[in-house]
Design a protein around this nucleic acid. Structure first.
Lengths: 344, 344
DNA sequence: TAATAAGCGGTAAACGTTTACAACCAATTG
DNA sequence: CAATTGGTTGTAAACGTTTACCGCTTATTA
């Protein structure tokens, strides 16, 4: 019973391996009697297809690589979870890599598909996880891939004039809405804690911040822009810096909720009241956002849908089915809670 | 340049595939000149070993399956992240499955190793992810596996009198310490929100709760035990129930920090002051625990070490190296913060 | 100098599947 | 009744590696 192969099964039934294979994978190309006979024998003997043999022959692994900058981030892990669920439903498994934002590590995971250990890639970064020389080479045959969340331009990334599908939200608009919300409340000095200058989503949210100011004909003060990261720590420490400004802002927009939690913490520690002294807004609507004191005003991203669509598109690509929409921009939603109020 | 195989490389160099293979994987079995010649040619032509062929031949995939009940849980995702990092360093990739605690799904992922898509398994549940009939069968040759966090007994799970290695903390002791801490502060009525009756870690923490009471000769009140889950929601809603008790407790021990956050939220909503009206303690020390108001008293689990040790042991098992310690109990640490204080 | 060893490279057989192709049989057709 | 068709199964060649085994050359030893 331990590790029986297709040959053993065939011999045991007195038929050819071809018939076994067909009975198992291609019902219809085999008589019903045969299909049943093989199936029950397979069950009884505990036959498990050795996928290595199968994959080698068919060059399909049913594995997908997902490369994430930080798996422990609440927003990311939500997306991944959804990806995994969607993939599993379609019979695919997810190999994942936490790149920590380091390009070398991204490429290391990208290699998995070049080594034929996976059929396609999802990446959360600006560039596909392949060496630049490859990306620029004409002979490069890019594997199925989908770009998620960190999309550079509305054209997507181009390889040989062919765009890579992506799924994201409109970061510019979303940030603009947050900031406009603050401006409409009456705030004039709004500090911002970014996600880092190398992150496309952060760049875009910054653009939204600027657009909102421009539209409201509000002057932009460079001093109010604090380059951070998408982390609790960044929010905490940069808020300390913000509080040292002579002309203190009346609102702080954090580009992710984790930073906003750090921000709230520092404000509380230093005796500031939110939202009366300072208003705070976040981004992502992680599940903790509703549990802070006061609850956090933020932008909800469609986490589940984001993951689901990525995988759906990727699988279509892998299976060479037509994919109707290759540039997906999902709706976000401004969620106003207690952390923002008009300045007193 | 697109997809060159070992044969192409061999032909291009006018040597046999055997030499190419040896030059690449077994330096020392080949002259230095040869090694170098092959290496540079491989680099230049962009040769990538097809791991399917290799794996088929060697029956080693360098993949590991990790089966988690809930990937988006902050504690879990921290452990996974550490696992991934450790595995990557050793040249392994992690295939992960979010089982949502459903046994069928666990087995579905367990199948991956039976289908030879992975070399070993890490599981976070009480039973190995294989069908019961298999587990009980004498002919079952269990694959390398390690049990993490949710360990049933100090013997580990037995298969054919052979114990499965595990890595965990002493949940009983840790919970006992939390509750003793509360008792020493002067609390006499301590409610508890569990992680669910099917979770071994929850059962053990409950045992610790009981032990602490016994040791302090404090009566146990069944009414104070609330069966929950390891989630925010459970903490939130069960706290509402707790507050309806006629004889209200002065402290609440939540078996995970997420529940504690939910608990704090409900308390705040209903106008209770923590810790003055009611003290709250959690478990896990997720990174948000220090950012709540007041900061949460909790038990720190060695998240990174937990993940690291699991993978290290598993890899030793896979590579048939001797593993000195198969039952690892890592140290935890009670972290007292502002959410617990003596009752007023 | 002959015998032995050591170093290196090639030959070819696996590993476990899937699938073109061919072969067979029975049923249908003209 | 011969020819054709359709349904079903078997044969055997791949897929891309690794590695046991063998043989060649050169160095070492007695």
């Amino acid at each position: 019973m331990s590790d029986i192969g297709i040959k053993d099964l065939a011999k045991h039934l007195g038929i050819s391996t071809a018939s076994v294979s067909r009975a198992l994978n291609r019902p219809g190309r085999v008589s019903e009697a045969m299909r049943e006979r093989v199936q029950t024998a397979a069950d009884k003997l505990g036959y498990r297809t050795n996928m290595l043999g199968s994959s080698l022959r068919t060059s399909r692994t049913r594995n997908i690589v997902a490369i994430i900058p930080d798996l422990s981030d609440t927003f990311n892990s939500g997306v991944i979870r959804s990806m995994e669920a969607t993939a599993a439903k379609a019979g695919y498994s997810i190999l994942f890599g936490d790149s920590q934002g380091i390009r070398d590590r991204e490429m290391q995971y990208g290699n998995l598909v070049q080594h034929k250990q996976a059929d396609g890639v999802i990446f959360f970064s600006a560039r596909p996880p392949f060496e630049d020389s490859l990306l620029e080479s004409d002979s490069f045959r890019p594997p199925p891939m989908v770009n998620s969340c960190e999309v550079v331009s509305s054209d997507g990334f181009l390889i040989q004039d062919h765009r890579i599908p992506y799924v994201t939200i409109d970061n510019i608009l979303a940030a603009e809405e947050v900031v406009t919300h603050l401006i409409e409340l009456g705030h004039k000095r709004i500090a911002i804690i970014t996600g880092g200058s190398t992150s496309p989503s952060s760049q875009q949210r910054l653009k939204g911040y600027q657009k909102a100011h421009k539209k409201a004909e509000l002057a932009l003060d460079k001093e109010l822009i604090f380059e951070g990261q998408y982390t609790l720590d960044a929010g905490e420490s940069l808020t300390r810096e913000i509080l040292q400004l002579k002309d203190r802002p009346t609102a702080i927009f954090c580009m992710c909720d984790e930073s906003a939690l750090g921000c709230l913490h520092t404000l509380r520690q230093q005796g500031f009241n939110v939202p009366d002294d300072i208003a705070v807004a976040g981004f992502d609507d992680i599940r903790f956002a509703n549990y802070t004191d006061p609850p956090l005003t933020t932008v909800a991203q469609p986490v589940t849908e984001l993951g689901k669509r990525c995988i759906e598109i990727l699988i279509k690509l892998i299976e060479k089915k037509p994919v109707e929409e290759t540039q997906v921009i999902l709706p976000h939603k401004l969620i106003v809670r207690g952390s923002t109020k008009k300045p007193v």
